[in-house]
Simulated assay, not measured.
Amino acid sequence: MGNSIQFPCVNLEIGATKKIVDIDVVKEESHLYLILIDLTKHYNESQHLVQEKNEYTISKHKLAYERGLSFVKEEFKNKKAQICSQRFWSIF
């Protein structure tokens, strides 16, 4: 088999028809082949699973960000309290 390039999950609209296809471009010797594989049903059926996975991933990253931010805020608050305490005691 020669060189090939794949383009997965390509949305095509031809007239009123909408399809989701995988496209393979294959070069064999002096010939170029364009292969369209109609995976509309597969992609439509798996869309809700992909959406759930994306939402879970976003939630996980948001939670990690919020935890990190909370840690930094607490660290800043403690550092600020420590500086204020040092200034207060340096007066005496």
Results as ranks from 00 to 15, higher is better:
T40V: 01
G68E: 02
S70Y: 07
V50I: 11
I58A: 04
D24K: 10
S46Y: 09
E28A: 10
D22L: 02
I35C: 06
K60T: 04
E75C: 06
F88N: 06
E28V: 14
H61A: 10
E52P: 01
V21E: 00
K53R: 11
N3A: 15
S30L: 13
L69R: 07
R87C: 10
E75G: 05
F88E: 07
L12S: 04
E74N: 09
T57M: 15
E29P: 05
E28R: 11
I14D: 01
E29K: 12
K53L: 11
S90V: 04
F71D: 12
M1R: 15
S59Y: 08
L49I: 12
Y56K: 14
N78E: 06
F71L: 09
L69Q: 08
I58F: 09
G2V: 03
I83L: 02
K62V: 05
L69W: 04
Q6S: 15
K79H: 09
Y43F: 03
I35T: 05
I14L: 09
E66K: 06
F88T: 06
Q51T: 11
F88K: 10
Y56D: 11
K41E: 06
F7Q: 02
S46P: 03
S85N: 08
Y33H: 11
N78H: 08
F92E: 12
K27E: 15
D24A: 13
I83T: 03
E29N: 15
V25D: 02
K79Y: 11
V25T: 04
I23R: 00
K41I: 03
Q82E: 12
K41A: 06
H42G: 03
V10I: 04
F88W: 08
Y56C: 12
D38H: 01
V10S: 00
K60F: 08
L39R: 08
L12I: 04
K19S: 05
K80N: 12
F71P: 00
I58H: 07
E55Q: 09
A64N: 07
E74G: 09
S30T: 13
S90P: 02
A64D: 12
K41L: 08
N54E: 15
H48V: 14
Y56G: 06
D24S: 11
G15D: 00
S59F: 06
L69V: 05
V50Y: 08
K41M: 03
D24Q: 14
I5E: 08
K60W: 02
I37S: 10
E45N: 09
I83P: 01
V50G: 07
Y43W: 01
F92L: 12
S70F: 06
